[in-house]
């Protein structure tokens, strides 16, 4: 049940984030929306690997090596999401740097004012 709830929340976060990125006209707000969608994707991936009644993939006294396969959840989605979060910060920093650069040139963050490529 927890897994289904989390997956549903992740999907809704993706939808909310995309809605914001499509609707907003302020570039900073669009970047905020993208980070919300990013969080949603990460939640979905981690939740798919979750199994009720099992523990985290760390072996210690409570989870002996012998029956680890019956006690832990899938570690692979967690490793992937760890990577995705770090890369997410990198892309956010890039977007922010370009937003700053655009503001410096035009003194505005309104996406409708950037009409150079309009044929």
């Amino acid at each position: 049940m927890i897994a289904q709830l989390s997956i549903a929340t992740g999907f809704l976060l993706i939808l909310i984030g995309l809605y914001g990125a499509l609707i907003q006209r302020n570039i900073l707000r669009m970047i905020v929306a993208f980070t919300v969608a990013d969080t949603g994707v990460n939640i979905v991936i981690v939740a798919v690997g979750f199994m009720a009644g099992r523990t985290a993939p760390i072996l210690d006294a409570a989870v002996p090596v012998a029956d680890a396969a019956a006690r832990i959840i899938d570690p692979l989605p967690q490793a992937l999401v760890l990577t995705a979060i770090v890369i997410g910060l990198g892309t956010t920093a890039l977007m922010l740097a370009y937003a700053f650069k655009l503001y410096e040139k035009r003194r505005t963050l309104d996406i409708d004012k950037f009409t150079d490529l309009r044929g």
Binding site: P57, I58, L59, A68, A69, I72, A79
Partner: peptide
């Protein structure tokens, strides 16, 4: 899933024995 899939099972069984790492992630 009720059971770990093949890849995850391999990691769970072999990470401690082969590599000696307690944290499988």
């Amino acid at each position: 899933d009720a059971e770990l899939n093949l890849t995850a099972r391999y990691y769970a069984d072999h990470a401690a024995g082969d590599l000696g790492a307690a944290n499988i992630v």
